[in-house]
């Protein structure tokens, strides 16, 4: 029975994850969409745990459910949008054709997803001790991937600056006050 448990967990949480994604697609209320996104993302974190990616599972929970979805909910509540505007779907001939092609590609490819890697089966049993732990991932991150890791910090910094600059921009630009203007006004008084 215990060797069946990972299989059952896989089926339950992969179904939950896909179901959450479908609810994001069909739901009209944006807040419900955000909650469905949380369900999908947390189920994916459980799938990462089944693949013994422990650090990544926790990072997924913190970053997605803790940061990104909070941003979504913040914006949904801040903008005070009407429901009928948010629930609208757009259909056109080309988009429908595109959707048909996407689904048909999935249906055509799905039976052919076969893997020629003679791998240990996915699951916690086959993995060596410490695989996917914070220590192992961190050693790789600060060793072999040190340069991409540091570049990532520049990416985040630029994203932060861009977010602040974009969100704080005034619609009508005010008259700029330079230091010289301030000094002139100071001495005039």
């Amino acid at each position: 029975m215990s060797h069946l448990l990972p299989d059952i967990l896989f089926y339950v949480f992969s179904a939950l994850s896909v179901a959450g994604a479908v609810l994001v697609l069909v739901n009209r209320n944006p807040m419900t969409c955000a909650m469905s996104l949380v369900v999908s993302v947390l189920s994916l974190a459980i799938l990462y745990l089944l693949l013994s990616a422990h650090f990544l599972a926790v990072a997924q929970m913190i970053v997605y459910a803790g940061a990104i979805v909070v941003l979504f909910i913040f914006v949904i509540m801040l903008l005070n949008l009407t429901d009928e505007e948010l629930g609208r779907f757009r259909f056109s001939l080309f988009k429908t054709i595109g959707a048909f092609v996407a689904v048909a590609t999935l249906l055509a490819v799905a039976p052919d997803i076969r893997v020629s890697i003679p791998a240990p089966a996915a699951g916690d049993a086959g993995a060596p001790a410490g695989y996917g732990s914070t220590k192992a991932v961190g050693k790789l991150l600060f060793g072999e991937f040190l340069l991409p890791f540091e570049l990532t910090s520049i990416l985040i910094l630029s994203a932060m600056v861009a977010g602040v600059v974009l969100a704080k921009r005034e619609l009508q630009p005010k008259k700029t006050h330079s230091l010289v203007d301030w000094l002139l006004g100071f001495f005039r008084t």
Binding site: V24, L25, P30, C33, F72, V75, I76, L81, E85, L86, R88, F89, R90, F91, K95, G98, A99, A102
Partner: peptide, 8 residues
């Protein structure tokens, strides 16, 4: 493809 608001 099908949702109309940018958040979705």
């Amino acid at each position: 493809l099908f949702r109309q608001n940018a958040i979705s």
